[in-house]
C-alpha cells in the first residue's frame, strides 16, 4: 500500500474533542456530515479545503481524550489517507485501524515533515519520503495490515465469520 498526498500539520496532544466535538456525538450519525466538522475546533479551514488522499501529520499523543470513533471516521470520510504522528493515544490508534485508516507512528514526524508539502508513504516497506529525505518507521503488524486491507474491523470480521461458516 503506497500513499501520496499533501500534508496538514498539527502539534502535540491533538484531542478528540477538537477533532470531533462532543456536542455532535449523538446528533450526527451520517459519516459525510461528520466529515464536515472534522478538526472544527482546531483548524476551521480544514474541512472545507481537505482533498482526497491528503495526510494529517502531528506530534505526540494524537487523538487523546474520548474514545469516540467519529474522531477517526470523520477524518477518513474527509478523504484523509493516513494520520502520521510521533505517537497515538491507544484508543485512537485502534479506532483508526478499525476504520481502515492507517495510523503511522513516526517518531520524527514533526521534525522532518512540513505543512503543505507532498509526501509519499510506503506502508509495506515502512518508508516516508518527503523534501527532507527518506525515513523509516516501524511497519504495522501483519495482523493490523490484514484489517486495513479488508477495509476495517467490521468488514474484516464479516470475512472471518464467512470463512468459519464455510
Amino acid at each position: 500500500m503506497v500513499l501520496r498526498g499533501r500534508v496538514w500539520k498539527y502539534g502535540d496532544d491533538v484531542n478528540t474533542d477538537v477533532i470531533f466535538p462532543g456536542k455532535y456525538t449523538y446528533t450526527i450519525t451520517d459519516p459525510k456530515e461528520m466529515a464536515a466538522h472534522a478538526l472544527e475546533d482546531l483548524d476551521p479551514d480544514f474541512a472545507g479545503s481537505v482533498k482526497a488522499g491528503d495526510l494529517v501529520v502531528a506530534g505526540r499523543n494524537f487523538g487523546c481524550g474520548s474514545s469516540r470513533e467519529q474522531a477517526a471516521t470523520c477524518l477518513k470520510e474527509a478523504g484523509v489517507g493516513a494520520v502520521i504522528a510521533e505517537s497515538f493515544s491507544r484508543i485512537y490508534f485502534r479506532n483508526a485501524i478499525n476504520q481502515g485508516m492507517p495510523a503511522i507512528q513516526f517518531k520524527d514526524a514533526s521534525q522532518y515533515i512540513e505543512s503543505g508539502e507532498e509526501i509519499t508513504v510506503d506502508l509495506g516497506k515502512g518508508e516516508i519520503t518527503c523534501k527532507a529525505g527518506t525515513f523509516n518507521f516501524p511497519p504495522l503488524s501483519e495482523f493490523m495490515m490484514g484489517i486495513l486491507e479488508d477495509g476495517g474491523l467490521v468488514p474484516h470480521t464479516k470475512k472471518v465469520l464467512r470463512k468459519s461458516s464455510t
Binding site: S67, E69, I91, N95, L153, V154, L161
Partner: peptide, 27 residues
Amino acid sequence: DSHTTSYGALGAFAAGIGRSEMAVIFA
C-alpha cells in the same frame, strides 16, 4: 468509553475501546 479505566479501583482489568470493537464483541 475512555473512562472505563475506573473499575481498576476494584481490582478489575478495565479498558476503553471503540464502537466498532464493541459491535464485534457483540457478534
